[in-house]
Computed example of a mutant assay.
Amino acid sequence: MEFFPYDVKELFKQIESKPNLWNRSAHEYRNKEAREHDWKAIYTHFEPNFDKMNRLDQKEIGECIMTKWNYIRASFMRTVKHGPPTRRPYVYYDHLKFLLKSDVKAIDAPHLDNNDDTLEQIPEKKLKVSPFLDEDTEIF
């Protein structure tokens, strides 16, 4: 991966402040124009002269920031879902907890601390019952 010239923790703060980019229950989440506007605000935050740059430079900056975000978000969600590969927690876990609010139903992670205030109650998984089984059949 190429060098990322911006502060990733600041990127997390910027994205958290724009729920249209990460919260599926946000009013404008499905509005492409609203999301593009929010991404442009983030690009401008990191590159104050973003509006004055040519289209090629703007595209390069946008792709750099979005690619970094997508890699980090995917890695975080994989870690949450499957647990950390080692005993050490994910490096940006504390900074990305806000993502758990939007994707609680996708999380089935017994290793998470259930006392965490950022987590809502995780619904239990429903068992798929085969139509070929009787009601009295026990499933192991």
Rank of each mutant, 00 (worst) to 15 (best):
V104R: 03
N114M: 09
K9M: 13
D94A: 14
D7V: 01
V80W: 05
P89V: 05
K125A: 15
R73T: 01
E138Y: 00
L99Y: 12
H45R: 01
R35V: 08
I122W: 04
D7L: 03
F46I: 02
R24Q: 07
W39M: 12
T86S: 15
S130P: 02
A34L: 09
N54F: 07
A26N: 11
N23D: 15
A106K: 11
D103N: 11
K59D: 05
L119M: 11
Y29R: 01
C64I: 06
I15W: 01
S25T: 10
S25Q: 07
H37V: 11
I65C: 02
N114W: 00
I15N: 02
F98C: 13
N115D: 09
D113Q: 06
N23L: 13
H37P: 00
E28S: 08
E63L: 13
M53Y: 06
N114D: 12
W39C: 08
L56A: 15
E60K: 07
K105T: 13
N114S: 14
N23R: 02
E47K: 00
E2K: 03
F98G: 09
L112G: 11
A109I: 07
K59S: 03
K125S: 14
P84T: 14
K18M: 14
Q58H: 04
F4P: 10
W69Q: 03
K126Q: 11
G83F: 14
M77D: 01
N23I: 04
D38E: 11
F12V: 05
P123R: 06
